[in-house]
Amino acid sequence: FACQWLNAHFEVNPDCSVSRAEMYSEYLSTCSKLARGGILTSTGFYKCLRTVFPNHTVKRVEDSSSNGQAHIHVVGVKRR
């Protein structure tokens, strides 16, 4: 389900990036709304992400508004 969900909601775009945590959060929200069992852990979800978008990269984005915490963004992917 996770791989199908990724294909339905995201697409390849080399000029874009999406927060990896936001992607997983949206996946969890969809699973909750659909009352799905067998929800992937974040590790399983990221493995699926690598399968669906094998050419993506990740980058660390520093967020000055959150006490220097960094966010991981998936580069080469955008929301549909």
Rank of each mutant, 00 (worst) to 15 (best):
S66A: 15
Y27D: 01
K47C: 04
E11L: 06
S64G: 10
V77G: 00
H9R: 08
W5H: 02
L34F: 08
F1W: 03
A2D: 03
T30C: 02
C48Q: 12
F53N: 01
R50W: 12
S65E: 07
Y46A: 12
H73C: 14
G38W: 03
F53D: 00
A2G: 08
Y24N: 01
P54F: 03
V58T: 09
Y46M: 06
V77P: 00
R36T: 08
E62N: 15
G76P: 01
W5M: 04
S29K: 14
H56K: 01
H73T: 11
K47L: 06
H71V: 13
K59P: 04
S17R: 03
H71R: 13
N13M: 06
V74I: 10
D63Q: 15
V75E: 04
R20T: 03
S17P: 01
S17V: 10
I72Y: 06
P54Q: 05
T51A: 12
H9V: 04
F10K: 00
A35E: 13
K59V: 15
V77F: 01
V61G: 15
R36A: 14
V58L: 02
D15V: 07
Q4F: 05
F53W: 09
M23L: 07
M23A: 04
E22V: 08
F1L: 03
R20V: 10
H9F: 14
T43N: 05
A35W: 07
E11K: 03
R60K: 11
F10N: 02
E22G: 14
M23E: 01
P14A: 10
S19F: 07
F10I: 02
V18D: 01
S19I: 06
A70I: 11
A70C: 08
N7Y: 06
I72S: 12
D63W: 07
H71K: 08
F10R: 00
E22Q: 04
S19Q: 07
G68M: 11
S42L: 09
S66T: 06
E22H: 15
E11W: 01
S32K: 14
V52G: 01
H56V: 10
C16I: 15
F10D: 00
S32D: 12
S66W: 02
S42R: 03
R20P: 05
E26S: 08
G38H: 05
T41N: 11
M23W: 00
G38A: 08
R50A: 13
V61S: 11
N13D: 11
Y24I: 03
V18K: 04
S65L: 05
R36I: 03
Y27Q: 00
G38P: 13
K33P: 08
W5D: 00
N13P: 00
V61Y: 15
R36Q: 10
A35T: 08
E11Q: 03
R60P: 08
S42N: 02
L49Y: 01
A21V: 05
W5S: 01
E26P: 00
P14G: 05
T51W: 05
R60M: 05
I39V: 11
T30S: 14
C3H: 04
T30Y: 03
R36V: 13
Q4T: 12
G37I: 08
R36K: 15
A2H: 15
H73N: 05
V77N: 00
P54S: 08
E22S: 14
Q4R: 12
T30P: 02
H73G: 07
E26Q: 06
Y46H: 09
V12G: 14
G38E: 15
C3S: 03
G38V: 14
E62D: 10
H9Y: 04
N55C: 11
G68R: 11
L6S: 04
G68A: 13
S29M: 09
G44F: 04
R50N: 14
C3P: 01
A21M: 06
V74C: 04
M23P: 01
S65W: 04
A2I: 06
K59L: 02
V12K: 11
D15A: 07
N7I: 02
G37F: 02
N7T: 03
R36L: 10
S25A: 14
K33C: 04
S64Q: 08
S25C: 11
M23H: 01
E11A: 06
S42Y: 01
K47R: 04
A2R: 00
E62M: 06
N55L: 13
Q69K: 06
F10G: 00
P54C: 03
S65T: 08
V18H: 15
S65G: 03
S65N: 04
N7K: 08
L40H: 09
R60Y: 05
V77C: 04
S64R: 04
G37P: 08
E11S: 09
E62Q: 12
C31N: 10
L40K: 06
D63V: 10
G76R: 02
P14C: 03
C48T: 14
G44T: 07
Q4C: 09
D15T: 05
Q69W: 05
K47H: 05
R36G: 14
A21P: 11
V74N: 01
Y24M: 14
Y46K: 14
Q4L: 06
L40D: 02
E22T: 09
W5C: 00
S32P: 10
H73P: 01
G38M: 09
